[in-house]
Design a protein around this nucleic acid. Structure first.
Length: 431
RNA sequence: GUGGGUGUAGCUCAGUUGGUUAGAGCGCCGGAUUGUGGAUCCGGAGGUCGCGGGUUCAAUUCCCGUCACUCACCCCA
């Protein structure tokens, strides 16, 4: 018989998170939840797909994301739908749809979930990736910017990520950018023959991006380009200064990068990005900024807001082993024989009902194979329960590391084991 | 979308100027040890050499194509 069915593989750039990787994800997600809560943010779960127009209008039609990276498909009735490439547009849509006023307590929202972009995969870049993002809605105060950036920074600190740096810039308000753009374009035109092909196109399409180009010759050509920060209106400038002061007061280290330009159209005023030197080329690990015009763009009443998004897959890549918590103790039940087996099954159930993690291996039937299973599963304790034990109304509790064994009466075994584990636990905590 | 690298056992990789039954380590299964795991020793199973075509008496090896994985560019988290 020849096997003709081909194995169905997963989709390119879309990965499983295996049980081995889950402890890291749990730590990261729990940290996100706990920290967001402590800052007064409320979780929101928005759909993973929306009408395509939401992203086109929200993110900007000329951005790479909208132009070539979206998973877009027609619904049965022809409506164009898109898997969300980022979270902010969806949150803002939900916010507007529900009405800001009746949504009072949740002016500070956060989300965790998968995003989708059709890019060529590489280290730290997937087609389905995961973001933790927050949106602080309804405040123009620089303190709101500071709070969001603080949360961003504290999140990475809590996870002890190495090699972090925070960069800030201010894009000013639309007016500032318009006057600046004129100057910048004029400057770029004088250097046009020095720029790369890409940047030459950018001069007209999106001149700000030319400053962000990584081609060395372009960097050189634009070293004397006018700085956007010099074109900020007095109020924009003051806002930025107060953000910087706020960060200094909280001892959050940053540097100002006048070339920092975000890839989404909706940003204004403060923008920021955290990169991690422990990663490869894709080292932007979290970024965000203010987007005071987005609500209006999406048909809502003008509402200021500031937020960030963190790439959790990249966080996982940079996460040091030391951040993982100690494993909880648990019991492997090694029961065998005609009488031992059923006694073991009820002991398993009894332990579990007392919230003691307990497991066994139904495929192993001899003490030898059971112990080997326990060893492979990394069980710290094994309960040995054979026919002899049942006859004598006892169980053996074996410490796998020390090989010490203790006997307990079978009929009270689960509670005896529970208190034994508690004793071990508290002793460990004291030490 | 563009470029580079790599596809040989479950995993990490060797592989002879192209030549008979393609190897190692780790892992897995069994035994030494029929109520005590890890260690040691002994034995065993497991491979369309990514796929398709070409050159050749002969291809894992050379050529072409293709697919997959991967890194980088672009861009982004």
């Amino acid at each position: 018989m020849q096997r003709t069915v081909t194995v169905i593989r997963g989709i390119k750039g879309i990965k499983d998170i295996t049980p081995e990787q889950m402890p890291k994800w749990s730590v990261v997600e729990q940290t996100a939840h706990a920290l967001a809560h402590s800052f007064g943010f409320h979780e929101i779960r928005i759909p993973v797909f929306e009408k395509t127009e939401l992203y086109v209008h929200g993110i900007g039609g000329a951005t790479d994301i909208v132009e070539k990276e979206m998973y877009t498909f027609p619904d049965k009735d022809g409506t164009s739908l898109t898997l969300r490439p980022e979270g902010t547009a969806g949150v803002v849509r939900a916010f507007i749809e529900r009405g800001l006023k009746t949504y009072q307590p949740s002016r500070k929202l956060y989300y965790i979930g998968p995003m989708f972009r059709h890019e060529r995969p590489q280290a730290g870049r997937l087609r389905q990736f995961h973001q933790f993002g927050v949106e602080f809605v309804g405040s123009v105060e620089p303190s709101a910017d500071v709070e969001v950036i603080t949360l961003l920074w504290r999140f990475f600190s809590a996870l002890r990520l190495p090699g972090l740096s925070l960069e800030l810039n201010s894009l000013g308000v639309l007016m500032d950018r318009q006057t600046y753009k004129k100057d910048l374009v004029a400057f770029l035109k004088t250097k046009e023959d020095l720029l790369c092909e890409n940047c030459r196109r950018r001069v007209d399409a999106n001149p700000l991006r030319a400053l962000d180009c990584k081609v060395p010759r372009c960097r050189e050509a634009t070293t004397e380009a006018p700085y956007l920060t010099d074109f900020l209106s007095p109020s924009s400038k003051e806002h930025f200064d107060r953000v910087l002061q706020g960060l200094q007061a909280l001892a959050i280290p940053y540097s100002i990068n006048p070339r920092l330009v975000r890839g989404l159209d909706y940003y204004s005023m403060t923008t920021f990005e955290v990169s991690c030197s422990a990663l490869g080329a894709q080292n932007a690990i979290g970024a965000g900024g203010r987007y005071d015009d987005l609500f209006e763009t999406l048909g809502g009443t003008p509402t200021p807001a500031v937020g960030f998004a963190i790439g959790l897959d990249r966080v996982i890549l940079a996460l040091p082993e030391a951040t993982l918590p100690a494993r909880e103790p648990w019991i492997f039940v090694a029961s065998f024989g005609e009488k031992g087996r059923p006694a073991g099954l009820s002991l398993l159930d009894s332990l579990r009902s007392k919230h003691v993690k307990a497991d066994t291996d139904y495929n192993a039937s001899t003490l030898k194979t059971l112990l080997r299973s326990a060893d492979r599963l990394g069980a710290p304790y094994v309960v040995i329960l054979g026919d002899d034990e049942v006859t004598n109304n006892q169980v053996i509790l074996r410490n796998m590391a020390t090989k010490e064994q203790e006997n307990y009466p079978l009929d009270v075994a689960s509670s005896a084991i529970l208190s034994r584990l508690r004793f071990q636990q508290t002793r460990r905590n004291i030490n």
